[in-house]
Each structure stands twice: as structure tokens, then as C-alpha cells.
Design a protein around this nucleic acid. Sequence first.
DNA 1: CAAAAGTTTGACCAAACGGTCAGAAACACG
DNA 2: CGTGTTTCTGACCGTTTGGTCAAACTTTTG
Lengths: 214, 214
Amino acid sequence: MKKLRPKTRIQRKNTAAILDAALEVFSQHGFRGATLDQIAKSAGLSKPNMLYYFASKEEIHTQLLSELMVVWLDPLRALDPLGDPIEEIVGYVLRKLEMSRELPRESRLFANEIIQGAPRIMNNIKNDLHPLVEEKCNIIQGWVDAGKIVNINPKHLIFSIWSTTQHYADFDVQIQALLAPEQGEKFNDAAVFLETLYRRALTPNAQKNADLLE
Amino acid sequence: MKKLRPKTRIQRKNTAAILDAALEVFSQHGFRGATLDQIAKSAGLSKPNMLYYFASKEEIHTQLLSELMVVWLDPLRALDPLGDPIEEIVGYVLRKLEMSRELPRESRLFANEIIQGAPRIMNNIKNDLHPLVEEKCNIIQGWVDAGKIVNINPKHLIFSIWSTTQHYADFDVQIQALLAPEQGEKFNDAAVFLETLYRRALTPNAQKNADLLE
DNA sequence: CAAAAGTTTGACCAAACGGTCAGAAACACG
DNA sequence: CGTGTTTCTGACCGTTTGGTCAAACTTTTG
């Protein structure tokens, strides 16, 4: 790490422009498919000028990923062991879906990186994500053991939440093509569907009969 | 199209080797990230020799995708309008999961292509996938209307099935990292989880109480 | 204002890229 | 065997790639 903190306003403005442009390009083409010329042009800088702020293509990519990892895990961090189990999990699903709506480029950046073997982010997965998942799975397992939710495998539950929600960002073009011409309230429909799916699947039978009688 | 059908045994052997190597490389790096040298080396051929069988990088990629599209849609085609609704959908989920287990490279090839905007496969999506999805959604909607399954949006149901099952191929490295050190029967656990998820979510209440009483 | 610090650029480089080509080697077959 | 066809290769080409550099320009600061 050479730059301890961006000081000048020019540094702040340009590093921000570079990272935003890089997010755009990396998320669309993956690391190897993205070019510095594309990023520089999209950032409105010359290539050498961009490399004045970041030493290499890899450095840009790495910084993007490590910054995003923090934001990306927020919805899971917010899962409250003291809250109502069903509401907590459904809330997590909806927060995650909201992130796909608001930050689709970030979602695709991660997806590209992981599909391609996560060569540049495996450390973050093992050091940051893994313990967090472990912690939250213990909470969910506690809910299972207490009979608050149905007996399911917590890790696979989390995998399913990740996949169903991120799908709306990562596979957006496919979804757009298949939803055409209706399209309409894509994310609202998704929210309704996913809330129904998880609420019905997770609510124990006795409680469901009381709460959800149709 | 220049070659009407691969005739000689050498042609058959080499085109197969090329396509297999290309699948490996494209699925790991995406179209732009893959190089002809990598593919040629992996296929055990020289680059000019490879280009004797395929005119260009794009031609290899296109042929891979169009061949795979057929296989890829088989599980959905098999959804039988005359079968038991819940069993048909659960069966579809499990067939799709099985494809993630058996053909992870193919899954990643599609995922790479679609995340990056599906520039080379959008026609197939619109011409082949879209009508098939439309047809099967009508079937599912019929089951909904008949009260055979719970009231959900069929398209979003299909999206969720695609995402949850393909996730095990596309995000394999992440799943491996998070499941460590246990790992165990990854796909079996996934099958149990997904079957439970969809069976519980889709079964109407009355029927569920009769069938699944715990 | 003037020096120091920070910023920007065009020209350039070696390596890697997708692709071509003439001709050599291997093969099929009467 | 010989001859026509298929298969293969090394050398090569123009372009793009990530990255460098000295020098010029701009901004900050004493």
C-alpha cells in the first residue's frame, strides 16, 4: 500500500472516477476481458494518468473487491439472533434482493470473480465471509433446534437466498428477455414471490396453520 | 457453414478435443478472457491446426453454445403437464441440480455468457428458450388455477429453480470454501434442502396437512 | 511570486493476441 | 506403389494489451 489516504480533491475525484469506471467494465467483461483503455476512457482519463493513481490493473480490481466485500455482507450481518426467526430470514432475503436492484454491477463483479475461480478474492471469502456465515448458520440452527423454523440445512438455505436474489442482477438480460413484453414491476414481483417462497417453506406447520390460513 | 458433417475419424477426434478444451477454457475465463493458445494447448494441437477445423475463436464459442442449448433445456422440456404438479416441479428441480453436478463447465459457460450481456446467445434465448418457458409457465399457471399448487408467479418460480440449482456449479469454489472442512455429500444435502424447500412452499395447505403432517 | 508538490500527456515498449500462409507430412485409396 | 486429399507446422503479420518514462503542465504552499 503506497497511498496512505487520498488527500487532495483531485485524487479523491479521480480515484472515484476510476473505481466507478472499473466497476462498470470489470462487471461486464470479467478481469481478463476488461482492458485498461476501456476503463480509462470510461473514467475520462488517459491510460498513463490512470496508472498514476493505481499501479496496475490488478490493483484496481483488488481495491474494488475489498471495498465491496464490506457492503456486500451487510445484509447478512444484520440478521438478528434476537428477532423473530421467520421475519429475520425473510427480511434478509428482501435486503439481499434490494441490493441486486440497487447494486447490480457489484453483484456481477462478484459473480464474474467467483465463476472464474475466485483467484483474487479467495482470501476474503475465507477470512471474512466464512466466519460470518458460520456465525449466522449457528443462529439459524438454533432456531431449527428450538422448533421456530422448519428443519433445514442452514448453509444451503443461505446458498439459496444468495442465488435467488443475486440472480436478478447477474442474469438480468435473460430475465428481461423472458419477461418481455410485460416486464412491469420485475423486482416487486420477485419480492412477492421470494417472500411467499421462504415464508411458506420455513414456517412450521402448526404455526403456519394459525397464521397463514387461506 | 462450411463443413457439412465431420467425416474422417481424425476430424471427429480433433473437433471433439477442441470443443472439450474450449469448454474448459471458456467456462473458466469467459469469451474475451480465453485465448486460442490456451485452448489449442489444452486440446493438444497447434494453434494453426486448430484453426484448420474452426475458422475463428468466435466460431468455436458459437458452436459450443448452440450445441449446449439443446441439452440445457432438456430438463424443462420434460416437465409433464399430465403429471402430478408437485412431483413434476420437484422432479424438474432435481434434474436441474443433477445437471449442475454432471455438467458444471457447461453451466459456467452459460453463466459467463449471460452475465456479460449474452451478446452471442441472445437469439437462442429469444427463439428457443422464450417459447419453451412461455409454454411451461402456462402449464404451471394451470396448476395454480386448479388449486393443485400454491398461488405463485410461474416465471419467478422457474427463475428461482434455475438460480438455486445452477448456483452449485457456477459458485462452486465459494461453496467449497464455506462448506469446508465438512464438504461431505454436498449435492445430496443440496437435493434434500431444495426438495424440502419447494415441496413445502408449493404444496397447498389442506393437502400439506394431510400429506406431510409432522 | 517562486519553489515544491502534484498531475497529465504523448511517445514508446515488449509481450500476447487472433489470425494467415506456403509448404511439408501423413493419410486414403485405386 | 503412386497420386490426390487431408492434416499439420513454423514462420510470420498487424493489432491490442498492460505498463513505462521523461517531460510538460497545473496546483498548492511558504
